[in-house]
Amino acid sequence: MSPASLLAAAALAALLPAAVGSATDAPSTGAPACRGTIYLTFDTGSQSQAELIAQTLKRHGIRATFFLANEKTVRGDWSLDPSWAPFWRARVAEGHAFGSHTFDHVYYVKDGAGGAIVVKPQFGAGAGKQASWSAAQFCDELRRVDERFMALTGRRLDSIWRAPGGKTSPRTLAAARECGYAHVGWSPAGFSGDELSSSRYPNALLLQQSLAGLKDGDIFMAHMGIWSRKDPWAPANLEPLIAGLERKGFCFGTVPEHPAYLHDHSNKIKK
């Protein structure tokens, strides 16, 4: 588990206050007013829960935000292979939002000399090896997802990205901004815990803490499948989490609708 995950786990256990601003959607005609808005986000992973997540969101009429990397899947292919085009096209048709998660799920390691960014891809030709990139190369890695997604679906990404493991630096954030991407993390109470040990963090505990801690404006993060978790999070927790939040009067939105990103018109992806 990455240091970022350990920190997030500590934040989860402590149920710290939300780290992002709040917002309330305007109610539609005849519908009760929302008590607040939660922003569900899902990062690619093993994709073992991809269909379940998609169908659960569709059943509840929820639009979420997906952050995409080209990751190895339980089907033996890759999450941005042409074989996944029907899945992603269906999500586009449903009105979800999409951001870059770096093509090869590239972890930031440290700042290097002369403005370089030291990274470690998880997949691809350089998997497991550290490399020193310029800001332009870092931007190219974000754009690779946009180019592939456009080829698969005919739609461009939204101008947002999420760093693998949530690991960033002022240098990576600046490089991404230069090519039009705003970084999206998650709220302390929005850490699902789906990458943690299921023996130490059983699903029932994670669900209880999410329902107790999530507040108006919070960005929630889960994965579309995690290889390492013995008892997967989504089958047990996604439906009761959504139902529980709905009972509390929460509505749901996509990250581009979040007040922290809605009015930032400067973030346009530079092709």
Rank of each mutant, 00 (worst) to 15 (best):
P121S: 06
G180D: 02
H183I: 13
S192R: 08
P164C: 11
R89E: 03
V145I: 15
G154T: 08
A136V: 10
V145S: 13
L173T: 07
G99L: 10
F98Q: 02
L196C: 12
E178T: 15
A90H: 11
P170W: 12
L211Y: 04
A163K: 09
Q208C: 12
V92A: 01
P202N: 14
L211G: 02
G180N: 07
S159C: 11
A131E: 07
F103C: 06
E94S: 13
I160G: 00
Q137E: 06
G213R: 09
G180M: 09
R91F: 11
A174T: 04
G193F: 04
R162D: 04
Q209M: 15
I160K: 02
G126P: 02
G193Y: 08
G99C: 10
A204I: 10
L207W: 03
L196E: 11
G154L: 02
A204V: 12
A127F: 03
L196W: 10
M221L: 12
E141Q: 07
S197Q: 03
S199E: 08
A93E: 13
L206D: 07
C179F: 04
Y108P: 06
R200I: 12
R91Q: 04
T168D: 02
T102Q: 01
A176I: 00
R91S: 12
V109W: 05
F123D: 05
R200A: 15
F149K: 01
D146R: 08
E94L: 12
A113L: 14
G154H: 14
G99I: 12
S199H: 14
E195H: 14
E195R: 15
V118C: 14
R144C: 06
W84R: 01
A125N: 01
L157S: 05
L211E: 00
M150N: 05
Q137K: 14
F123A: 09
S79M: 10
T153Q: 05
T102V: 13
G166Y: 01
V118N: 08
L142S: 00
G180Y: 11
I117R: 02
H105A: 13
P121I: 04
A182W: 11
E141F: 08
